[in-house]
Amino acid sequence: MQLKEKITIFFNNGRAKYALILFLIIFVLSLFSELIANNNSLIIKYKNNYYFPIFKQYTDAFFGGNFPTPADYNDKLIKQNIENNGWMIKPIIPYSYNTVDYYLTGPTPSAPDAKHWLGTDEEGRDIVARLLYGIRLSVIFAFLLTVISSVIGILIGAIQGYFGGKTDIILQRLIEIWDSLPQLFILIIIASVFLPTFMSLLLILLLFSWTGLTGMVRAEFLRLRNFEYVKAAKVLGVSNFRIMFRHILPNALVTSVTFIPFIMAESITSLSALDFLGLGLPTDYPSLGDLVRQGKDNLQAPWIGCSIFIVLSGMLSMLIFIGEGIRDVFDTRKNS
C-alpha cells in the first residue's frame, strides 16, 4: 500500500482527521508559547531605537524607571514612559507561565476576567499561559519518552523473537522481574533523594516504560521468522542484523506503530500523575499535573479544575482518536 492511500484512509476517519488537525494546531501554537504568552514585550520602539525584550533583558532603569532590576512591562510607570517615547507591542497574553500578577484586585486564585481569560492559579499566575507552556512540556516529554522507550522496546523484542530459545527465555524472565518491581515506590525514593528535573524524570520513567512494546514485537518476530521470505534471505546469506531490521521489522512494525499514540497518551498521564502527587517536576515547571492538584485543592475556584480537566481530557482523547485512525490504516481486513 502506498503512502498516499494510507493518508486517504486515515483522513476517511473523520474523528481521527479533526483530532489530528486540532492536536497539531494546539501543539504548534504551544511551540511558539514565548510569542503568545510572555511578560516581556515583543518589540519596543523607544527613543527611535528598536528593542526586542523577549531575546534580551533590559533593566527597569533603562526605560526610565528607578531600579536596576529587569523591567516589568506590565508596570504602569514603564508603560507610560515607553509610550511617551515610542510604542510597544505586547504578546496576546502579557504573562509568562511563571509571572505572578501583582496588580490583582482580589485574592488569588482570582476568577476569569478580561485580563486573565481563565483566571489565575493560587499563586496569581495566568492559567492560559500555564496551560500553553504545560501542553508543550508534556507533549515533548511524552514524545521523547514514547520514542526512546519504543526504540529500546522494539530492539529487545526483536532480539528475543528472532533468536528465540535460551536468549528469549532469559530475557523474558528478566523483563518479568523488572516489570514486577514496584515502580511508584522506586519513584518516591528517587524523588526524595534527587530533585527531579526534566531529563532525570525522563530517564526514570524510561527505566520502566520500555517493556511496553517488547511483548508485542517479540510475538511478531516469532511469527515472522518462520515465513519463507525470511528463510530465503537466510539461504541467500543475508546477515542476521539485516534480516531483523530490513526483512522482518517493517512487517512487525505495523502493530507497534498502531500502539504509539496510545503509549503517548499513557506517558502524558503518567507525567501528570507524578506532578499531581508532587513527585514529578518541581513547581517552577509549567506542569499540567500541578494544575490538577491546584484544582483539587481549590474547589472554590472551579476555573482551575474545569480548564485543566478540559485540556487534559481533550488532549488524551485526541491522541486516542489519532491512534484509532492509525489503526484503521493498518487494518487489512477493513481495507480489503
Partner: peptide
C-alpha cells in the same frame, strides 16, 4: 539456493521486486 512452495509467503510484502531480487547481489 531454494525456491519455496507458497509464492504468497516467500516474497516480503514490504519490499519491491527490485529490492527482493537485488538482495542476494548485495550479499
Amino acid at each position: 539456493q531454494i525456491v519455496f512452495q507458497d509464492p504468497y509467503n516467500s516474497l516480503n510484502p514490504r519490499m519491491n521486486i527490485y529490492d527482493i531480487i537485488c538482495e542476494g547481489l548485495n550479499v
